[in-house]
Design a protein around this nucleic acid. Structure first.
Lengths: 207, 207, 207, 207
DNA sequence: CGATAAACGAGACGGTACGTCGCGTCTTCTG
DNA sequence: CAGAAGACGCGACGTACCGTCTCGTTTATCG
C-alpha cells in the first residue's frame, strides 16, 4: 500500500533540516579556506559568510575538520563526479585521453582544492581517519581517473603493465601539490610536460 | 671609551644562554610532532618533554611554526648537510648514484620529517615565508641532491638535458610524501622502483 | 454572511486546544522545579515529563518565568484559593484562628512552593513585574489570610491596631522562607512558636 | 633558620597572582549584579568592567555562582567583619544596642547585598553547598550581630531566655529581604519599628 | 669578591577559538 | 488548526592554547 510504502521512507518528524543550506555552508567554507587558510579559518567566519548561526553549522558537522573534509569532498564530486566510468574520454591513445582530462583541473578552483588538501593534511596524525579522507577528498577522483585511463591503455595493449600503476596514477596530482606548496601556478603546459616527459616514458620504459 | 673597547667581541654580561639546550628542545619538538601531529603539538608539551620551562623555548623561537621549522631543518642537516657538493657519491651511472643516496632517507626518521613538513604546510597561507621554508627544511636537501646528481649525469653525457629537471628532482620526495600521507611505509624497494620505472625512463625518453 | 454570523460566539475553527493539558504541564513544572531547582529546570525537561512537545508548552506560556509563576500560582489557589473571605476559621481568638490555618501549609508541598518562590526571585531585576508576582504567587494567599485574621481580631477589639499590620502578616511566611533556604524543615511546632512567641506578643506589646 | 622558615612560607614559584585584582573583580561583579541582576550578569561583562580578560576571572573562580558568592561574602566582611566580638556597641539596653547597629546596614549597599543574596538563592538546589553560603555571605554577619546582642541582653538579665533566639536573630534581616523583594525601601524607621514592635515585645512576652 | 645582568622556572595574563547548552521562534508533518 | 518533533538564531558558558609578561632564583662575567 502507498501508505505503508511511504511509512518506510517517511521523513523524520519535526521541522526538516534545510539541506540546501549544507551547500551554502560548504561553499562558504571553501571561500574562507581559500582566503585565510585552514588554521585562520573560523567557524564563526564560515557561519557569518553563509549567513547563518554557528549552531547551524555545528548541527551538521561536529568539528571544523569534518566540515572542511566535506567541503573539499563536495568540491571534488562537483566537477568530477559525473565523469565516472564509461564516459571517460576515449581518443585511442593514452596521451590524448590524459590531455583531454587536464582541462577540468586546469583552473583556479584547482588551487583551492589543493590548498584545502594541504590544510587538512595537518590533521593526519590527529585523526587517522582524516588522513586518507583528506587526500581522497581533494585529489582522489583525479587519481581515480588517471588510474582508469592507464589501465585501459594497458588493457588495449598500448603499454605493458607497469610495476606500480598506482604510483603513476598519483604522480601528476602530487607534482601539482608540490607546485602549489611552492606557490607556483599549475599550468596546462606543466601537466602536458609531465605526461610527455614522465608518464609516457615510464610506461614505455617498462617494456 | 673602555666600555666601547672590545664591545664587539665581549659577550654580554649576565648568565650565558645554554645553547646545548637548543638541541634538546628541537629533539623534543620532533618527538612530540611525530607522536601527536602538528596541531596537537603544544609548546607546553615540548617544554615538558625537554624538561624545561615554556619561556625557555620562547626565548629561542618566537612561534610554534618557527620552532617546528627549525626542528625539521636541523633534522635535514643532521644526516644530509655534510654530504654537500663534491663529496656526493660518484659511481659513474645516475642509477647507482641515486640508489647510493637512498639509504640515509630510508628509515623511520624519514617519516618524522615528512610528517613535520605536512604539519607546516598548513601555515603556507598564514605566513608566506614559511611555505617554501617548510618544504626546504623537510625535503629541500633531498631535492638538492637529486638535482645535483641528475645535472652531473647530464653534464657527462649520460642523458640529454630534460625539459624540466627541477620537477624530476622533486619527484621522488613528493611521491614519498604521498605515501606518508596514506600511512604507507617508505621502503627501499619503492624508491628503487621509482628510479628504474620513472626517473630513468623519463630521462631516456627525452632523447 | 454565514461565516460572519455568530463569529463572536463561535469557537475558532480547527482543533481546539486541550486545556486539560495545562494542568499536566503545571504539575510537571512543579515536579521538575522541586527536583532540580529553577536554573536547572529546562522547558525540555518539563515537556518530557508532561509527555508532550516543547512547543505545546510555549503555546501556553511565553517564557520559562511565566510558566513557573503560573505553576506556583496554581499551587497556591489549589489549597488556599477556596478558603477566601467569609469562610475563614472563626474560633473567637486570633491564636486559635491562626493555628487552624497552619495545617494546609504544614506539608511537603509547602517546601516546593517556597523553593519555587526562591527560584523566581532571581528574576526580580530582569522583569520587575515578576518580582511581586513571584511573592504573590508563592506566599501571597498565605499573607492575605494572616492579614485578614489579624484585622478581624483588631476589629473585634482583641488587640489594639498595630503600627504595621502588613509586616506582621508577612512575618510567618518569610520566616518559613528563611528556614527553607537553610534546608531546615518547616514544622507545625515552628509555626506555633512564632504565633505564641512573636505575633501575639507583638500585638499585645503595642498596647 | 631563616632560610628554612622562609622555605615553608615560600610563595609558589612563577609570577605571583595579583590579588589586588581579586577585589577589582569582586567589585565589578557587585556592580554588574546590582545593575543587571544575577541571570543577566555575564562573566564577560564583569571582566570588561574590571578591565581584564575573561580567563583572569576564571582563573580565580571556577563558575559564575562561586564568583557571586565570594563577591557577596566579601561585601559582608568589608563593613561588618571588623565589628566582631567585644567591640559591639554596649549601651546597656538591647533596644539602644540594636538601633546603634542599624546604621551600617541602612544604606544603598544593603540593597545590593540583598539583591545578590536573592540572586544566589536560585542556585540553592543546583549546589547544596551554595544554599547556606548564599544566606551566610549576604546576611550572615547581620544575623550574628543580632544574636550576640540578644544573648548579651539575656545574660545580663534584661530578658528571660526566649524559646527560639535564633529565629529572632534572623527576623530583622529576613523582613528586610521581604521588603527588598517587593521593591520597597529599607528605611531606618522600618527597622526601628521592627525592634520596638516585634523584637522587644517578643522578648518581653516570653516572661 | 661582590655587583650586576641575563638565563631560567613557574605561572599569571590578554586574547581568541573551540564546542556545548538552553532559550524562544519557526517550519513541517500528522491527526 | 493542535500537537509532535526538531531546526534555527542567539548568546553565554567553561576550556584550551597562543604568545607575552612578571618575578623570584641561579649563574656567569665584569669591575
Amino acid at each position: 500500500m502507498a501508505t505503508e510504502a511511504g511509512a518506510a521512507t517517511r521523513r523524520r518528524a519535526g521541522r526538516q533540516r534545510d539541506h540546501s543550506r549544507d551547500a551554502v555552508i560548504l561553499e562558504a567554507t571553501l571561500a574562507v579556506l581559500a582566503e585565510h587558510g585552514y588554521d585562520r579559518m573560523t567557524i564563526d567566519l564560515v557561519a557569518a559568510r553563509a549567513g547563518m548561526a554557528r549552531a547551524t553549522v555545528y548541527r551538521r558537522w561536529p568539528t571544523k575538520a569534518e566540515l572542511v573534509l566535506d567541503a573539499v569532498g563536495r568540491l571534488s564530486s562537483t566537477d568530477v563526479g559525473e565523469i565516472d566510468a564509461a564516459q571517460l574520454p576515449d581518443t585511442g591513445t593514452l596521451r590524448e585521453d590524459m590531455i583531454a582530462m587536464i582541462r577540468p583541473f586546469d583552473d583556479e578552483q584547482q588551487q583551492i582544492r589543493i590548498q584545502a588538501v594541504i590544510g587538512l593534511l595537518v590533521l593526519a596524525r590527529t585523526d587517522d581517519r582524516l588522513a586518507q579522507a583528506a587526500l581522497g577528498a581533494g585529489i582522489g577522483p583525479w587519481i581515480d581517473i588517471n588510474r582508469a585511463l592507464m589501465q585501459r591503455a594497458v588493457d588495449r595493449g598500448e603499454f605493458a603493465p607497469p610495476a606500480d600503476l598506482e604510483t603513476l596514477a598519483e604522480l601528476i596530482p602530487m607534482m601539482c601539490v608540490s607546485r602549489a606548496v611552492q606557490q607556483l601556478p599549475i599550468t596546462y603546459e606543466f601537466s602536458v610536460a609531465l605526461i610527455d616527459g614522465v608518464i609516457i616514458p615510464a610506461l614505455r620504459g617498462t617494456t
